[in-house]
Amino acid sequence: MIELRFILEGGDFDRAGTASSETKKILKQLNIDPRVIKHTVVALYEAEVNIAAHAYRGEVTITVSDHQIVAVLKDEGPGIADIKRAMLEGFSTASPKVREMGFGAGMGLPNMKKNADVLEVESTPGSGTTVKMIFDF
């Protein structure tokens, strides 16, 4: 079993994606099916962008075992008031700055759901959000 850990800063768009990039390199070295790698890193990158866009800071933990990859992204931030609404395609509270970067179209969480076998979102408004994703192989 392998565990990877990354610290993310809210607002840091220059570094958003580095955890996904490092994870991709390691999953490749582990010879995991390229389709599983793609699903994992696309969903992870969406989650990283969400933290850069909305949270103050976050921590990513990736655990790779024999038959699955588990990614947990725990952030300190404003939280999500209405998770059901946030899961809808097209719903977004992103700032104009985030939109200028090519994101904030309300597609992040739906795309994470599409790519992961399991997606769990827990949030406490005013405190933070934890996203757990499982990718089976």
Binding site: F13, D14, A16, G17, S20, S21, K24, K38, V41, V42, L44, Y45, E46, V49, M101, G102, F103, G104, A105, M107, G108, N111, K114
Partner: peptide
Amino acid sequence: SDVLTLDAENMLLITGLANVQIIRTAEV
């Protein structure tokens, strides 16, 4: 966000953005 929903590899991406996220998006 649209590019990240595509299920294709080895395609050409034409974009008017010139920030680091186009490279990160292309990578994943």
